[in-house]
């Protein structure tokens, strides 16, 4: 597929107004990619609205909210509501820690300090380590110490060992646009370090921090491998879906997917809204200041 596109031609007018043929080829390729990206998801959203006769494949049989009711009734499909609430709670906790800790670590990595490379590679190692290995290690460790694993202790830590490196990488990208002259100017005007951070650095980086929060939330909300051995007796949502994929062969599984995606879309929409609002407010206030 790609080979044909690689061979480019000297002819054509690359800088003229006409588009080179590669534009059309790649536009087609891009469209196919987007269809493949979204198409399957839409098929399960559709199939989750079937009625009692519905199965796991097309054609759609009937139209109802039956499978959603089944989901919330906690019958054969397991403890959906409970796992859903725990997942949201855990994701919120993970988000809070990820934002604060990524922010401070991001500040630290802006300047060289003794041992920074070691900390950096420790973070990368934590990012790439197989999740289940960490999960097992944490599980056994808790066992040896006589602690009970639970979603708000061991699973929280396990997830942070993966969301934090991610958040810090995003923080790097965010901070690459930050000009440290602004900080220096504030300090020259007599601001303390704390005032500079609170009044200059934080507001400038706010949209980036929302992005870090979005990462933290969604990575946690979807985390499986690290949570499997650390969640303790009560399941989180991905663990619930995992057991459903093994046992449940009804559209309830798809209904779960639809609900989960609706939550995701709310989180994405909320984050984007927050980012544009912060940006707009800032634009308005700079305009007013001039």
């Amino acid at each position: 597929m790609s080979g044909a596109k690689k061979t480019s031609r000297k002819s054509g007018t690359p800088r003229g107004n006409g588009r080179p043929w590669t534009f059309y080829a790649l536009a087609g390729f891009f469209t196919l990619y987007v269809i493949a990206l979204y198409g399957p998801m839409f098929s399960i959203y559709l199939l989750s609205f079937q009625d009692l006769k519905g199965g796991l494949v097309f054609p759609m049989r009937g139209f109802s909210l039956h499978w959603f009711e089944e989901l919330f009734m906690q019958t054969r499909t397991g403890d959906f509501s409970g796992s859903f609430r725990r997942s949201i709670g855990l994701a919120v906790l993970v988000t809070l820690f990820t934002v604060v800790f990524s922010f401070t670590a991001g500040l630290a990595f802006r300047k060289r300090f003794w041992g920074d490379t070691a900390v950096f590679y420790l973070m990368i190692a934590s990012l790439v380590a197989p999740g289940l290995v960490l999960g097992i290690g944490i599980g056994i460790g808790f066992n040896l110490l006589g602690f009970q694993t639970s979603w708000y202790t061991s699973a929280l830590g396990a997830q942070l060992s993966w969301t934090l490196p991610f958040g810090i990488l995003v923080m790097f990208a965010v901070m690459s646009v930050f000009n440290s002259d602004w900080e220096e100017a504030a300090r020259d005007l007599g601001a303390t370090r704390w005032q500079t951070t609170r009044l200059i650095v934080l507001p400038i980086l706010a949209p980036g921090l929302v992005a870090v929060a979005l990462f933290g939330f969604t990575l946690s909300y979807d985390e499986f491998a690290r949570t499997l051995q650390t969640a303790g007796p009560l399941n989180t949502l991905p663990l619930e879906i995992w057991s459903m994929t093994l046992n449940v062969t009804s559209p309830a599984l798809y209904a779960l997917g639809t609900v989960s995606t609706i939550v995701s879309f709310f989180v994405i929409g909320g984050s984007l809204y927050l980012i544009t609002r912060i940006r707009r407010k800032r634009a308005a206030s700079t305009a007013a200041g001039e």
């Binding site: 979204y38 098929s43 879906i241 995992w242 994929t245 798809y254 997917g257 989960s260």
Partner: peptide, 17 residues
């Protein structure tokens, strides 16, 4: 955008296809 939604859900969505 799909990256922010559940990977597991996106995986099972291939089954009906």
């Amino acid at each position: 955008v799909p990256f922010w939604t559940s990977n597991i859900v996106r995986m099972i969505s291939w089954i009906p296809l």
